[in-house]
Measured scan of single mutants.
Amino acid sequence: MDALKSAGRALIRSPSLAKQSWGGGGRHRKLPENWTDTRETLLEGMLFSLKYLGMTLVEQPKGEELSAAAIKRIVATAKASGKKLQKVTLKVSPRGIILTDNLTNQLIENVSIYRISYCTADKMHDKVFAYIAQSQHNQSLECHAFLCTKRKMAQAVTLTVAQAFKVAFEFWQVSKEEKEKRDKASQEGGDVLGARQDCTPPLKSLVATGNLLDLEETAKAPLSTVSANTTNMDEVPRPQALSGSSVVWELDDGLDEAFSRLAQSRTNPQVLDTGLTAQDMHYAQCLSPVDWDKPDSSGTEQDDLFSF
């Protein structure tokens, strides 16, 4: 819950932080000083300027060897085509990944977070970031790969997607708890209302004896509580940590079903599988986004697919 609360507080303090972009060759504004600060901008989305290598189908939802083989196929196909790589912007948030063309600003792909089953910074092609997700059109699994400016960037994108998945799962947990509370309150309110109706004398007997209905007592009954809980029953509950912020979080049926399955089948359902080692994760978390744009010590960066 700490990640969720800190993310909400950060967004309320400075929503404009989320509009910064990394990996864009110096076009961005001043960047936060450390990885923790940038992680807090996830709610509205972190932007990464990358190059799209392509996509291939895979048979399993996750796995280092599986993704490595898929990336190898994608890279080989991209090299064989001889075409310049498409420059894209990857927007990562707890909602998922939005992929747009840098030149036309046209939407290429919009992947809900619950469809993503794996992401990684490839070991062999260490400047490549990739994720595996279920197609929104059918049940097939797709591996999408992107060329980053350097290994640090690939690791940073991988960690960002993993963190977005974690925050999304926490949102789901909060929403589920809130819905259970509202359902319980609604049920209790309905029981109270039913009890009051059972003990209320029939209207005919009131008229016969000349008694008047006590409207004041009726007004004191917990009807307002019942209506408050039943009027918006169809509205999706939102985490309290975000009250007053500009973010509107809505959970669709697909996300609810997917996270429910994860909660039942996995020990740590909030953790998205990645190909990063503990050492890689520690190294990337210690980086400032400013470091992502620094040239690798191995030599001059080449803006070309064939540089790796």
Rank of each mutant, 00 (worst) to 15 (best):
residue 52 Y to T: 06
residue 19 K to T: 15
residue 302 Q to D: 01
residue 37 D to W: 06
residue 68 A to H: 12
residue 44 E to N: 14
residue 161 V to G: 01
residue 253 D to L: 06
residue 128 V to K: 13
residue 64 E to Y: 05
residue 207 V to W: 05
residue 302 Q to L: 15
residue 97 I to T: 11
residue 199 C to H: 12
residue 155 Q to E: 08
residue 163 Q to V: 01
residue 162 A to K: 04
residue 16 S to D: 10
residue 129 F to S: 08
residue 30 K to I: 14
residue 37 D to A: 12
residue 259 F to N: 02
residue 65 E to L: 14
residue 259 F to E: 02
residue 172 W to H: 01
residue 29 R to P: 13
residue 114 Y to N: 03
residue 216 E to N: 04
residue 210 G to H: 08
residue 170 E to K: 11
residue 29 R to S: 09
residue 152 K to A: 12
residue 216 E to Y: 15
residue 202 P to T: 08
residue 69 A to S: 15
residue 235 E to T: 13
residue 294 K to I: 12
residue 258 A to Q: 13
residue 10 A to L: 09
residue 263 A to D: 02
residue 78 A to P: 10
residue 109 E to F: 00
residue 220 K to A: 00
residue 266 R to Y: 00
residue 213 L to R: 12
residue 92 V to L: 11
residue 206 L to E: 07
residue 111 V to H: 13
residue 205 S to M: 10
residue 158 T to D: 02
residue 269 P to W: 01
residue 167 V to E: 01
residue 204 K to F: 13
residue 136 Q to N: 12
residue 62 K to S: 06
residue 227 S to V: 02
residue 11 L to S: 15
residue 221 A to P: 04
residue 287 L to E: 07
residue 242 L to H: 04
residue 30 K to R: 11
residue 294 K to V: 07
residue 279 Q to R: 03
residue 99 L to S: 10
residue 238 R to C: 06
residue 293 D to C: 04
residue 2 D to H: 04
residue 76 A to Y: 13
residue 158 T to N: 02
residue 21 S to Y: 06
residue 219 A to E: 04
residue 227 S to M: 04
residue 262 L to S: 01
residue 67 S to D: 02
residue 56 T to D: 00
residue 98 I to G: 13
residue 70 A to C: 11
residue 307 S to D: 06
residue 138 N to L: 14
residue 182 R to H: 08
residue 157 V to Y: 01
residue 201 P to E: 00
residue 266 R to S: 01
residue 52 Y to N: 02
residue 102 N to D: 09
residue 63 G to D: 14
residue 177 E to H: 00
residue 279 Q to F: 03
residue 167 V to W: 02
residue 268 N to I: 01
residue 111 V to C: 11
residue 248 V to E: 04
residue 126 D to C: 11
residue 215 L to F: 07
residue 120 T to G: 06
residue 188 E to V: 03
residue 224 S to Y: 11
residue 159 L to Q: 04
residue 29 R to Y: 15
residue 259 F to W: 09
residue 173 Q to H: 11
residue 45 G to F: 04
residue 23 G to M: 12
residue 175 S to T: 14
residue 79 K to P: 05
residue 63 G to W: 08
residue 42 L to P: 13
residue 199 C to D: 03
residue 236 V to G: 12
residue 76 A to T: 12
residue 98 I to S: 00
residue 112 S to M: 01
residue 220 K to T: 00
residue 142 E to R: 10
residue 133 A to D: 10
residue 135 S to G: 10
residue 234 D to R: 03
residue 115 R to M: 09
residue 121 A to M: 06
residue 220 K to I: 07
residue 29 R to W: 09
residue 193 L to Y: 08
residue 306 F to P: 01
residue 10 A to C: 14
residue 185 A to V: 15
residue 236 V to Y: 00
residue 132 I to K: 07
residue 47 L to T: 01
residue 214 D to L: 10
residue 21 S to H: 15
residue 7 A to E: 15
residue 269 P to H: 02
residue 4 L to I: 05
residue 206 L to N: 03
residue 200 T to S: 05
residue 208 A to L: 00
residue 211 N to G: 09
residue 255 L to S: 06
residue 37 D to Y: 14
